[in-house]
């Protein structure tokens, strides 16, 4: 499965690149990632979230990095769901903003994991990557992921409808949400 998405961020390319290159930042805006930990200069350990059915972890390696322009990576050979990605950062015509273009490739296996992955991506896999980039934009431009009463859990607000009503959260809901 190949997914592409793009957005424009009103920050310089060097800054957006630097944020992405610190791979440990990825889980702040990518819904499926729980943790990314750098294990070397170009290697890292990725843990994906429970929506996969169970946590799933793999090693990844950066194949190419051009500061301010491009990062490519791919999972190590033994990954359960082999995947690779490229993100490019190009100056927008306004001379201020940066266009972010991302392409991800998943080699979805058969069996239980394959089914879980397919279920996770649902009928509109592109929507999720679009939303990931929207959150990246929120973080880069405003400092954090924006929350509403209907969608209070930031990137964890995956199921868009029905949402909780647009009314303030109770103490119990806040405690439950904070613990997730």
């Amino acid at each position: 499965m190949e997914l592409t998405a793009t957005t424009t961020i009103r920050r310089p390319a060097t800054e957006v690149y630097a944020f992405w290159r610190d791979l440990e930042n990825l889980p702040t805006f990518m819904a499926h990632l729980q943790e990314v930990r750098a294990t070397g200069d170009r290697t890292s350990r990725w843990v994906a979230d429970a929506p996969f059915g169970k946590d799933i972890a793999w090693d990844a390696e950066i194949l190419e990095e051009r500061p301010g322009e491009k990062i490519s990576w791919r999972s190590a050979a033994d990954a359960d769901v082999p995947n690779a990605g490229t993100v490019r950062f190009t100056p927008a015509p306004d001379g201020i903003s940066t266009e972010v273009h991302i392409a991800l490739v998943y080699d979805i296996p058969g069996g239980t994991i394959g089914k879980a992955v397919a279920k996770y991506f649902g009928e509109e896999p592109h929507q999720q990557l679009d939303d990931d980039l929207r959150r990246l934009k929120q973080v880069m431009e405003t400092g954090e992921v924006v929350r509403s009463d209907g969608a209070p859990w930031g990137k964890r607000a995956r199921e868009e409808f029905p949402q909780r009503p647009a009314q303030p959260l109770s103490d119990a809901e806040l405690a439950k949400g904070a613990g997730r």
């Binding site: 939303d131 924006v146 607000a157």
Partner: peptide, 25 residues
């Protein structure tokens, strides 16, 4: 309005690009 996106920079506050968590809808 977030005050930081391109829409806000153009004073198009009701089209702010960051304040709608349901932007996909």
């Amino acid at each position: 309005a977030c005050g930081a996106c391109n829409a806000c920079a153009a004073e198009l506050y009701s089209c702010c690009e960051n304040t709608n968590p349901n932007a996909g809808i």
